[in-house]
Simulated scan of single mutants.
Amino acid sequence: MKFRFSILSLFCAFLFCFGSLAAQETSVMVRALAKDAKFIGSSIGGAKVIIRNAETGEILDLGLTSGSTGDTKLILQTPKERYDKLTDKNTAGFEAKLNIEEPTFINVEAHAPINKKQAKVVSSTQLWVIPGKDITGDGVVLEVPGFVVDILSPQTHERINASDELSLKANIIMMCGCPVTEGGVWDANQYEVKAIISAEDKESREITLNSTDKPSTFAANTSLEKGYYTITIYAFDPVTGNTGVDKTNIIIN
């Protein structure tokens, strides 16, 4: 009887130890890197990170990236060799904590920038995660392409007299919030910024917006006949392919 009890005790202890080893909390660092720019963090509201079990769809963890956009020189202006890091302890990221009992194939998504609905895109990848094998350092880096474009003028559903000049103005920034300026790291002269003005009964036309003295601000003036108009302002970088768009509607009396 004692022998049976001892065997049973050993078996239970084995199961307990095995279970505690298998169900280890596993850390995965996830970062969102704006294409041709820096990391998406606290200054623009962060990127929403969602990690799912790729087979079942179960959400294993989610949260927002937080921290700084990182070191401009390190990210953009320093030649990289194998294993060189792009980040430091202050660089924006989200450290996910996964409670997994076996090697798990996961989907990692970054929705960014989370607070700019017209600019938000989803970047994703897949990978295996092993219980207890943390993924740290730069971690999983998801590239987020595009520009954030905000139309500043005219305002949505604004009524403007046909006799008045129409002011077109937009704010253009990188997806990390980095500014666009003439001759800057993100050179305004490199980007094409245009307004497409359309109405149901009129032919569409394009107007070029030029950079102003204020960082990230592009502007132009025009005039319109009476009607209901949709104004689409876009930014395009012919070098990287980065593109951003915003739209508004106005009434010309």
Score class of each variant (00 low, 15 high):
Arg31Pro: 08
Cys17Arg: 02
Glu55Cys: 00
Ser68Arg: 07
Ile40Gly: 04
Ser20Phe: 10
Leu21Val: 14
Glu81Ile: 12
Thr65Asp: 10
Ala23Tyr: 14
Gly45Leu: 03
Ile44Val: 15
Phe39Thr: 07
Phe18Ala: 13
Phe18Thr: 14
Ile59His: 04
Cys17Lys: 07
Ser27Cys: 05
Arg31Tyr: 01
Glu58Ile: 12
Gly19Lys: 09
Lys48Gly: 04
Thr65His: 02
Lys35Ser: 06
Gly70Lys: 02
Gly67Trp: 01
Ser68Ala: 13
Ile51Asp: 13
Ala23Asp: 03
Gly70Asn: 02
Arg52Met: 06
Gly19Arg: 12
Leu74Trp: 01
Phe18Glu: 11
Gly45Asp: 06
Gly70Tyr: 06
Ser43Thr: 13
Asp61His: 06
Val28Asp: 03
Ala37Ser: 15
Ser42Met: 09
Leu60Lys: 00
Gln77Glu: 15
Ala54Gly: 01
Lys48Thr: 04
Ile51Phe: 02
Leu76Pro: 04
Leu33Met: 03
Phe39Gly: 04
Ala47Thr: 10
Asp61Leu: 06
Gly46Val: 11
Leu76Glu: 12
Gly46Arg: 07
Val49Ile: 15
Ala34Ser: 15
Val49Thr: 09
Lys35Ile: 03
Val30Asp: 13
Gln77Trp: 02
Thr56Trp: 01
Met29His: 09
Lys35Leu: 05
Thr72Asp: 15
Asp61Tyr: 00
Leu64Lys: 11
Glu58Phe: 02
Asp36Met: 01
Ser42Pro: 02
Phe16Pro: 00
Gly63Asp: 01
Ile44Glu: 13
Leu62Pro: 00
Ala13Leu: 14
Phe18Trp: 10
Gln24Val: 08
Ser68Asp: 13
Glu25Trp: 04
Phe14Gln: 00
Ile59Met: 01
Leu33Trp: 12
Gly57Ile: 09
Gly19Asn: 14
Asp71Leu: 06
Cys12Gln: 07
Leu62Met: 15
Gln77Thr: 02
Gly57Val: 08
Ile59Lys: 12
Leu64Ser: 07
Cys12Trp: 07
Cys17Asp: 08
Gly19Leu: 14
